[in-house]
Each structure stands twice: as structure tokens, then as C-alpha cells.
Write a protein that binds this DNA or RNA. Structure first.
Lengths: 343, 343
DNA sequence: CTTGATTCCGAAAGCGCTTTCGGAATATTA
DNA sequence: TAATATTCCGAAAGCGCTTTCGGAATCAAG
């Protein structure tokens, strides 16, 4: 690729490679005059230091990795793009790269982590969708590579993480429904191995208890993270003797499916049964009716995660790199007071 | 990171680094016995060749880049995840990496391309959302780095590309509406600089002509690629003296916004005005009513693009690496015959 | 004008791996 | 057994860049 090497440049300048290198890297032992001369020549010849060579010499990959799992339809997560955007923004300040790896199995994922870390391909890693007990963080810690998780784990005290306060978010969502007068509040939850799903679930339960409501297992429906999962779960809930008057969903996507089930029954979301989603997706404004949701601030999450990772790489104490942000209730039109008892 | 180097490994084995290297890389001049011995030791010590060193020596980055632009809300594109997934799947066969770069301006994007290519950081590039006249492909060609575009350009004959036949898709969508009896068919189009938007627009027009319909500029509304853009565009169309009885939208997202505008007027998509989207997003099944759409097969597009890029890198003629796939009409419930004239 | 402190650059040693080349050691053929 | 052909590995030269070290040349101080 790069036809112009340091050697070519230095020969043209009548300097040694070392000198040119130092000039370009702003060493103080190079006179301002020659530094400029070198810069100009480099510019003119279109010199680009070979990354592999530089990285080898410098002993640094100038690169971090994001490893995402194939599971859970992770790839279609709404936060993917934003996260990558923020990450790369953070990295671009120092001209570092972002390498992506997607795994095809849990085993595969651990292998990928090891390989990327131990081959010196990256200086740090970030993973998303943490499990409560996540073998990936064990692996990363054992390897000793800097990392930050997007989402907490059971022993998050030990590492750097970024998370949204899912627990409080769902507690708040339930509180909101209670204030509207609901007492039969359902939850369509995600796979509980995932920390975020477990937190939301726990927050939901806590919300009920806050308001003196009992926990009814039949009011909790399991789902994957897809619209279809939400649809099926909601159909189940609607088939109950006494269907819930409100349901909080693990995500906006799931809420979308739930809404469809509600409509199919001839009911209307926000009237016969309120529904609250989670994510704050823009498309929620355009559903029928517009979806009330707990909106998470993901526009800058990636940026923050990147900054945290860089800090850890720079030697910061991972335990100090922990950030918990909050979601906020965004009322649209799928939440309303319960209708008069009807059975 | 990697504590065990080739040197350490070779010393432990009582062999030279060169020999160990050759053993690990399956050179034929190493006896099967020592090869096995080396493998075992490598495995045991957890040896991982340092990537930077390997890449430098080998003169190959073992890596390709995907550069995405910040524009157009590209990041939230539905195909992002699938594309990355497919790409990485293709690359993982040879254990190559995928590095991501997101640009913050058109200028920036060109700079990124140059830097990645000329610093030998990647062996090839892929870009999405091509413009009809795309300076990025000019740049890549001028640099001489292998690449494939996701979407065609004005001079696509010259390079490798993957695309969906947008033109035919929209022509077909219009044909479908005509067969249902529609004669006032609108199009909410995207920014025409983008090749895909221009193709869809052209396909729409061609569809009208196919059926002997005239082109009315006022029936074409411009929009960005967001739900909101579709919403505003549709409001405009509904404000016409004689609103269209059907509208084909540049994307499902845009269609979502359009549907909202239709509902707000007290009408129902598929009854007073039919709407057809494009993308085939799963969430379209759960809108109200479920969105009829031209579905594109993106599950394997990434894989294909990756394979094509690899082929070009391996020396294949870029002009032979061109692939055009078709979208297919997925009828759901937003298409129907026009209602009786009503004004 | 000499001595010592500064500037500024050349020389050279890597970074960790790959690959070519040549030559022992062993096997094959006459 | 001698001569030729094979097998298998050691030695060494890079890949392109960074960085330490030392020494001219230039400066300020005596």
C-alpha cells in the first residue's frame, strides 16, 4: 500500500530515519526548522507511517475491541449504532482504531476475547449485554486486559462498567402506573440470565411492593427480546381470567409486539391496558398510539464507555471507572388510568 | 500482553525461532514429529503470535475496514448489524479482523479512507450508502486499495459492488398498486444524492409510466430517512387538493411516519390510502396495520460483501465482483384497492 | 580563548515474527 | 561403499518504525 516509507522520506531529506521519526513525533531534540522541513516533505510525499511497524515498535496496538455476541438478536439492538459511534468518537481523539468481533457461540466468544487480547491486537475491550454471572469478564480479568462492560454483573465492584439504572427505571414505571390507579400490573421480562433483564424484573417487583401490591407469578410473562416474543407473551397475559390492566415491557420492541396483541383483542393500548416500554426509541413516537417508554440516554453512552476504557488503559483504577445513568419516563399515549372493572 | 513470545517458546523447545515459526505455519520442511511437539508446547504455554509483528513481517494487515458515515442516521440503519455480522463471518474464516471507522463529515471520511489504506492498516474497505457520484470511490480507486461498495454508483462498471435492485423493486411496488386500481400514487423519496434513493425514485416513475400514468411533481415528497421525515412528507401529501390514494415510501421507517400522519387525519393506512415501505423490517409486522413492504434479503448481504472483498484482495477482477439481488413484495395489510372517488 | 553546557542529529539496537538460504544429517540409488 | 538425493533444521536477514545513546557543532560562561 503505502509506497513512501520512512526510509524514502529520510533519504529525500538527507536525514536519518531516526531523525525524521523524531521530528514527526515531536521530540524536543529536533530543531523547529528541520521539524517543519520534515513535516512539509511528509505532507508532500503523502507519507503515512506503517501501522503494523509502528505498533510493533511502540508495543501498543493503538486499538480497542468491541466484541458482540450473536445471541439475543444483539445485532439489531438499537444501541449498537450509537454505541459504536460514541466509542469511535472517543477513540478518534488519539487516532486509535476500533475493531469489531462478533461471536457465534459462547465458547467462541471466550476464544475471541483471548485471541484478541493475547495477540496484542487490542489494548482493551468492551462487551455489552452482560450476564449476571458472566464468564467473559472472568476471562478478561484472568488475562489482565483492560476492559469495561456495558451493563453490570454480579461482582461489578471489581471492574469498570457503564450501566443504566434499570432497577430504578422499572420501579419508577410501576410507580407511575400505580399512581394512575393500576393494581394488576404485568411484566413481560427478558431472559433473566442477562443482568439488565434481571434488574428490570427486580425493579418491577420492587415497584409493586412499594405500593403494597402482591406479586403474582402469572402476571409475569417471559419473552425473548423480539417483537414476536412480546406479542406471544401478551397473548398469554390476555388469556388470563383477569388480564392485567397495565404491562411494563422489557423493551420497546417487545412492547410493540404486546401492543399488537392488545389491538388484536379489540382493545386499545393505553385504554383497556396500559403499556410502558423501555429504550425510548424514536419509532415509538410513531406507533399507534405512541408508546410511553422509559428512555435511556444512549446518544453519549458510547462516548462515555470509550473514555472510561481509555482511562483504564492509561492506568486508572477500574473500580473508579463506574458510571450509572438513569432512564426517564417519556409519557406518550399508551399509559392511562385503568378502566372500570369489567368482569 | 502476550507474555510468551516466539523466543520463549523456542528456547523451551531447544529450537530456533525460525523453526518454531515454520512448524506453526505448517511449512513442509518440518518433520511431523517436531511439528507436533511444537504445537503441544505452544498450546501449553498459551502462545499467541503477536499480531503487529506478524503483520509487519508478513506485509499484510489481515484486516479489512468498514467506514460508515455519520450522515443520514446511517448508524441506526437496520442493515448495520446484519452487515457487520455477515462481514465478520466472512472474515473469520481466515481469522482476519474487521475495523470500524465512523466519520463525522464528508471531508473526514475521505481522510479516514486515506489513512486506513495508506497506513497499511487494512487490506480492503467497504462503504455503504453510496452516492451517485461518490468521492469516496474515487479516492479508493486513486489509492488503489481493494474495495467493494454496498450500493452502486454512476460508474459502477469499474468497481466491485453489491446492491439490491431498487429500481425494479419500486417499479414493482407501483405495478402492484396499479393492479389494485390506484392511479394517484405518491412517492416519499429520500435524498437523491444517494444512489439508492435515486434508483427508488426512478423506479417509481418508471412504474407509473409502465401503466400509462402521468408524472405529477406534486405527488413526490422529499424526506430524510427518519420516521419524522415521513410524517411531515405525508402531511404535505394529505394537504393536497386531491391527496394520493397510495404512497410508496423510500423506507419502512419513513413509511411508519407516513402511517402516523394518515391516522391523524382519521384515515387508515390500507383503506383510504395504501402505503408500501421498503426494507422488510420485522417490526413492520407489528405496526397497525402491519406494513406492506418490499423486503430486501439482508441476512446474507454482509457475508456476500465480505466474500467479494476477499476475492478482490486475492486478486480477482473487481469488475467480475458485482452482485445484484432483488427485493420481494411482502404483502401485509397496508395495501388495498382505492376507495371510491370522494371529492 | 578555553571550558562547560546546550542543541541537534547520526548511529544502532531493537520490537517479535516470517522467510530464504545453506548445510548437516539421514535416506536412496548405483 | 561411494555418490546423489532427501529431510529437517539453524542462521541470518529483513519488515518499517521507535528510541536510547553518544558525539559533533553551536552556544553561553569563565
Amino acid at each position: 500500500m503505502s509506497k513512501v516509507s520512512l526510509k524514502a522520506l529520510s533519504e529525500k531529506l538527507g536525514l536519518t530515519e531516526g531523525t525524521v521519526s523524531r521530528a514527526l513525533n515531536n521530540y524536543t531534540d529536533i530543531s523547529e526548522k528541520t521539524r517543519e522541513r520534515v513535516r512539509a516533505a511528509a505532507q508532500e510525499m503523502g507519507y503515512r507511517p506503517n501501522s503494523s511497524a509502528r505498533r510493533l515498535a511502540i508495543g501498543n496496538a493503538e486499538c480497542v475491541g468491541y466484541v458482540m455476541s450473536w445471541q439475543l438478536g444483539h445485532l439489531s439492538e438499537p444501541f449498537l449504532g450509537e454505541l459504536l459511534d460514541g466509542l469511535s468518537e472517543s477513540l478518534s481523539d488519539r487516532h486509535w482504531d476500533l475493531t469489531l468481533a462478533v461471536s457465534r457461540s459462547a465458547q467462541d466468544e471466550l476464544a475471541i476475547i483471548s485471541r484478541m487480547a493475547q495477540s496484542g491486537r487490542v489494548n482493551g475491550l468492551v462487551i455489552s449485554r452482560t450476564l449476571t454471572h458472566d464468564p467473559r469478564v472472568d476471562r478478561m480479568r484472568e488475562i489482565g486486559i483492560p476492559f469495561v462492560t456495558h451493563g453490570r454483573t454480579a461482582n461489578s465492584d471489581e471492574h469498570a462498567w457503564f450501566d443504566i439504572d434499570n432497577y430504578s427505571a422499572f420501579r419508577e414505571a410501576v410507580a407511575h402506573l400505580c399512581q394512575l390507579g393500576h393494581r394488576r400490573i404485568s411484566h413481560i421480562r427478558g431472559p433473566l440470565e442477562y443482568n439488565f433483564a434481571a434488574s428490570r424484573h427486580a425493579g418491577y417487583r420492587r415497584g409493586l411492593l412499594d405500593h403494597g401490591l402482591d406479586l403474582y407469578p402469572e402476571l409475569e410473562a417471559k419473552s425473548d427480546m423480539s417483537e414476536n416474543g412480546g406479542y406471544r407473551a401478551m397473548r398469554y397475559l390476555l388469556s388470563l381470567q383477569k388480564p392485567p390492566t397495565a404491562v411494563v415491557c422489557v423493551s420497546d420492541s417487545v412492547a410493540l409486539g404486546a401492543m399488537k396483541a392488545i389491538r388484536e383483542r379489540g382493545w386499545r393500548p393505553g385504554r383497556e391496558v396500559s403499556v410502558i416500554g423501555y429504550d425510548g426509541l424514536p419509532l415509538g413516537e410513531h406507533t399507534d398510539p405512541p408508546l410511553t417508554t422509559m428512555a435511556q440516554p444512549l446518544q453519549t453512552a458510547g462516548r462515555k464507555i470509550g473514555d472510561m476504557l481509555l482511562a483504564v488503559i492509561d492506568g486508572a483504577d477500574p473500580k473508579q471507572q463506574q458510571e450509572l445513568w438513569s432512564a426517564t419516563l417519556e409519557r406518550r399515549e399508551t399509559d392511562g388510568p385503568p378502566m372500570a372493572e369489567q368482569s
